[in-house]
Design a protein around this nucleic acid. Structure first.
Lengths: 136, 136
DNA sequence: TTTTAATCCTATTAATCCTATAGGGCAATA
DNA sequence: TATTGCCCTATAGGATTAATAGGATTAAAA
């Protein structure tokens, strides 16, 4: 299930996509327009900035803005930054791989190969969708 | 991320698939062979039984057994029973639908249609895999 | 130079969900 | 009727998520 963090983050990104390029938008503005808790949103925007999705400007007239064009922001990146691994099990995760301690042989594991399939199909969707595709 | 409940449940189902049909296997046996906490496994097998995946026999010589052949048990059912909705958001869930309280128009929502795609592709994998496919 | 308006950052709380355990009840078999 | 093993509910503890608090820092404007 999608966390609220991810949901709020995507909403904020969509909101920013609709603004004029480069003009900083304040947290408060997004918070009110999208009905998201001010402080919670603050921490979300911070991680989006730290992961290179947003730029910010401090002080009066400051705020957040998109660094790249919406069409150049893949959904797979957004999902990884906000939600974490796309795979359902760590042992098939490309970016967050971890071995199962209880599984002697990954290649022989039925769950492993099943989850690999799921990962591939999900990933191909997220890789082929950009933030721009969410705005219609 | 897949919960331990689901992981344990699948392991137990695989274990039962490998047994002779209809012979009840005790919780204790599965617990020891698959290294799963006895009591936790007990509650998992109970939900599998209540959802029509397993049968049980009480008393001496009792235990759990598969009701259907592994090939007739779709992974989509197993996932729904153990993990819950397959969709990432309730508003695109087929079996556990819930309206987003913050979204005025689902058809205009970009997240909605994106998650519908993800659901469809995941579901088509789970619908086309059975428990039998996990055993190789 | 002072005020004001913003983000930045860390810490903490509150709530929820997940994992695991406890203990007795109930049914079937021998 | 004793024993075996599932049935069921309750609950504890921990991890994660969601939200809040408060001040530090930076930049623009008065």
């Amino acid at each position: 299930m999608l966390s609220k963090k991810t949901k709020y983050g995507i909403k904020a990104l969509i909101y920013l996509s609709k603004q004029k390029d480069g003009i900083p938008i304040q947290i408060e503005t997004i918070s009110k327009n999208e009905n998201i808790s001010r402080k919670f949103l603050e921490s979300i925007l911070l991680t989006l900035r730290k992961n290179g999705l947003l730029g910010s400007k401090k002080g009066k007239g400051g705020g957040y803005y998109l660094i790249k064009a919406p069409i150049d922001i893949k959904m797979s990146l957004i999902m990884r930054v906000l939600e974490g691994p796309i795979a359902m099990v760590p042992c098939v995760s490309l970016n967050f791989y971890e071995k199962c301690e209880d599984c002697p042989d990954e290649d022989a594991c039925g769950v492993h190969s099943l989850m690999e399939e799921v990962r591939d199909s999900t990933l191909s969707i997220f890789n082929n969708k950009s933030l721009a595709d969410l705005i219609k």
